[in-house]
């Protein structure tokens, strides 16, 4: 696989949220606004990048039998580092995201990348993979956060463009499920249209040949 492909596959084709449905709890729980989604995405990207680097470096030392517990300890230590850093430098964001910061430990995307990619590939590839996957995750969270913020409070990134409150339900819990459901439906629709078009083109080329 080429280097560019390793990086770009996580952003769209294998997007952790929209396609693989991994790590859904923070996706739904923290995206009440675009800025919260972005903050959570960057926090996850930080842990994912460092965990992929660490695990790629120690992959030859760790015995196969105990690799999962070792990975979990590595991730948990990195999350603790992140917790302390965020408490010190971004206390406001730390308070809003609350419980979901320690819960990065159990984000199945991070353990999934450690097990499926970093424990088998070189350092450079693991870094690229983490950046791609992390950016895809951040992008998904920011989009969902922006959609919910626009519909729910008539603003985006705290920039208000509408008077009044908007549909409050989108900021509350049900809006997370509804928003994500409709975004995935739209993406599926685009994908199907693209496939149908490709099929049509293939048929046209075939008929021209004849």
């Amino acid at each position: 696989m080429s280097k560019i492909k390793i990086f770009s596959k996580g952003i769209l084709k294998e997007n952790a949220v929209f396609v693989m449905l991994l790590g859904l709890c923070p996706v739904l729980g923290t995206t009440t606004s675009a800025i919260n989604g972005l903050g959570m995405g960057v926090a996850t990207l930080f842990v994912l990048l460092l965990s992929n680097i660490t695990i790629s470096l120690i992959k030859n030392i760790v015995p196969d039998m105990v690799r999962i517990p070792v990975f979990i300890v590595v991730i948990a230590s990195l999350v603790t580092v992140l917790q302390l850093l965020m408490q010190a430098y971004t206390p406001g964001l730390y308070a809003t995201l609350g419980l979901f910061i320690p819960l990065i430990v159990v984000n199945c995307m991070i353990l999934g990348r450690a097990e499926a990619f970093a424990s088998k590939n070189s350092l450079v590839d693991s870094i690229l993979d983490a950046l791609g996957m992390g950016l895809g995750f951040t992008l998904a969270l920011t989009i969902l956060g922006a959609v919910r913020e626009v519909l729910g409070s008539g603003s985006v990134f705290d920039f208000k463009f509408m008077d009044g409150d908007g549909m409050l339900v989108f900021v509350l819990a049900p809006g997370g499920f509804l928003g994500l459901g409709f975004i995935i439906a739209i993406l599926n629709w685009i994908k199907r249209n693209k496939e149908a078009k490709a099929k049509l083109q293939a048929v046209e080329i075939n008929t021209k040949k004849k």
Binding site: G175, G181, I184
Partner: peptide, 9 residues
């Protein structure tokens, strides 16, 4: 998946 999310909502 989409209808499952909407139902959950």
């Amino acid at each position: 998946i989409p209808i499952a999310f909407v139902t959950a909502g």
